[in-house]
Design a protein around this nucleic acid. Structure first.
Lengths: 147, 147
DNA sequence: ACACTATCGGGAACAGTTCTCAATCCCGTA
DNA sequence: TACGGGATTGAGAACTGTTCCCGATAGTGT
């Protein structure tokens, strides 16, 4: 479900709801994020599209993050990683290679996710914490590095 | 199990194994981390012990991180958070308040953790990823902020 | 006590990211 | 199509959390 056209329309709407335009530079960023098939750092985004100025890329990623189009991941790999918001792709978690710092996506399936939600609900409500969403990072060694 | 004396002895050993001494400043840091009862930022550590110079605190936290005594958490809250390594305390996860940025600990219990390990093993081995450990962040609103 | 090395502390340096601001673009209107 | 006005852009400066540097100090083994 959801063609590239759908994606761009949705992005345009969300930006518009925040009083923002869906400019060329922003479209390029979205396309780069789609093409990356996983979280990417800003330097990597710039490598893919040499014409994007750094400051504009940072600014537009921030704008799109605030509009709910982009999600920013922070790990101790030096740079932040960017990906499309989960509701534009699908709920997933991250595998983080401790050797090379690469981050890739992983899905756990509905049954596990439902069990997780229930466990989290039980654990957090006891602490008076109002849980809204979660993210799971699995650390280890990726295929490339274990070779 | 594990008194304060045990903790200090273990820390001393781990540092010693890395050719490092367990100096006064490092002991103060460990005590501050124990007293904090959860992940703390460096500025907060310094507030608790005004005599600790910033550069030494950063350096010693790094040394202790490398010796497996301290764990450093990165989130988009501005500062890194520090806590004692899990094997000096217990396996837990983090509740992160999206309003105030506070981070607190939460435990899920053995049954849930075992189920998680199994689910992660299934999901990662298919991707050829060699999983070593995991961390779960639950985002939402803490007790203070929802009041 | 001595020599030798690890550690300390203050400040400079660094890196990723954000901010500034004049120039440009884009949209709605006529 | 031309115009007015606000959003966006891009280059570089500024900012901020963290790390590095280095002379002074403290601890350890002999």
């Amino acid at each position: 479900m959801g063609t590239a056209l759908d994606l761009h329309r949705t992005v345009r709407e969300r930006l518009s709801d925040h009083g923002q335009r869906y400019t060329n530079g922003r479209q390029e960023l979205v396309e780069s994020l789609v093409a990356a098939q996983g979280p990417v750092t800003l330097p990597n985004l710039l490598l893919a599209r040499r014409t994007l100025p750094q400051s504009s890329a940072y600014r537009n990623l921030l704008v799109m993050e605030q509009a709910g189009v982009v999600r920013r991941l922070i790990h101790n790999t030096g740079h932040a990683h960017y990906e499309l918001a989960e509701d534009l792709t699908s709920h997933h978690h991250h595998l983080i290679c401790e050797s090379c710092g690469a981050i890739s996506d992983i899905e756990l399936g509905n049954r596990v996710e439902n069990a997780l939600d229930k466990a989290f609900e039980d654990a957090t409500s006891a602490a008076g914490f109002n849980a809204r969403h979660h993210s799971i990072d699995i650390y280890g060694e990726c295929v490339n590095c274990s070779a």
